[in-house]
């Protein structure tokens, strides 16, 4: 198979992007006014809504920690998220795995020790899936936690890159994901650390570095978008409270 299927000789992908181009990232903080914090993120056709509740009293006091907050993550994909109507699978392992990945990514970044004996619940809802679900979920969670005013040491900006039939591509769609190996990374841009990394399929060792750097470059672009959104939102909130001169 030639590389032409996913990258044309002119250097365009199936959806018209260039190899190193991420999809349009649109985000809205505070999308759910009744939640403590929320964010809606669109990465191309992947759409994710995250709501944060807490910090508040632990729902199950058995699991509460006396010196830090307990972080709980839940992930739900709507039945129509993937195109074909799929009824809600009970005890979905893929969903549980994604929720656990988000929790492990954010636990070290959040200052949970500031909220002893309480609980913070992150609910991720996948409205539409078209590749990069993990990245979108992580980006949306970052925004929702910041919207909730929960102390964090850094953003976590996630992006994926992959090697699809020899072509190095950024921010894969579901179609491209199905044809190649996809590496997702979560970058902590302030401290230049990687807080999350996942590779689901095989990738030649020689190209891991290349793909990783490509994904990190994408994550830096994501950071620019996210921090602009946070600044605009903070400005809006401070302005509405009269704490900042317009």
């Amino acid at each position: 198979m030639s590389r032409s299927e996913f990258l044309s000789p002119e250097g365009f992908r199936i959806d018209g992007r260039r190899a190193g181009e991420a999809r349009r990232l649109r985000c809205r903080m505070g999308a759910l006014p009744d939640a403590d914090g929320s964010a809606y993120v669109e990465q191309g056709n992947t759409k994710v809504l995250v709501s944060v509740s807490g910090p508040h009293e632990c729902v199950s006091k058995r699991k509460q920690a006396h010196d830090r907050a307990m972080l709980t993550c839940e992930f739900v994909a709507l039945p129509y998220a993937t195109g074909e109507h799929k009824p809600q699978a009970h005890g979905d392992r893929a969903a549980a795995e994604l929720a656990a990945a988000v929790r492990h990514t954010f636990e070290p970044v959040m200052q949970l020790q500031l909220y002893p004996r309480s609980q913070i619940i992150v609910s991720i809802m996948l409205l539409q899936a078209d590749g990069g679900v993990r990245s979108a979920a992580i980006n949306a969670t970052t925004l929702a936690l910041i919207d909730a005013g929960i102390a964090m040491e850094d953003f976590v900006c996630a992006c994926s890159a992959g090697s699809v039939q020899g072509a190095l591509l950024l921010d894969l769609t579901a179609q491209e994901h199905g044809a190649g190996a996809e590496l997702s990374v979560g970058l902590l841009p302030g401290s230049e650390r990687v807080g999350y990394m996942q590779l689901e399929s095989k990738l030649p060792l020689s190209s891991v570095d290349e793909v990783l750097n490509f994904a990190l470059e994408g994550a830096r672009q994501v950071y620019e978008v996210l921090q602009t959104a946070v600044r605009l939102h903070a400005d809006e909130q401070l302005g509405s409270r009269g704490l900042i001169s317009a």
């Binding site: 403590d36 914090g37 807490g54 910090p55 508040h56 009293e57 200052q111 909220y115 002893p116 004996r117 309480s118 910041i146 919207d147 909730a148 005013g149 929960i150 102390a151 964090m152 040491e153 946070v230 600044r231 939102h233 903070a234 400005d235 909130q237 401070l238 409270r241 704490l243 900042i244």
Partner: peptide
């Protein structure tokens, strides 16, 4: 550690939370 405004000596969070909402 939060989004807000840096006023010379402190950081004021943009998010206004009621005192009890987060308290245990």
């Amino acid at each position: 550690s939060v989004a807000g405004i840096a006023t010379g000596s402190s950081v004021r969070a943009s998010r206004k939370r009621s005192a009890a909402a987060s308290s245990v």
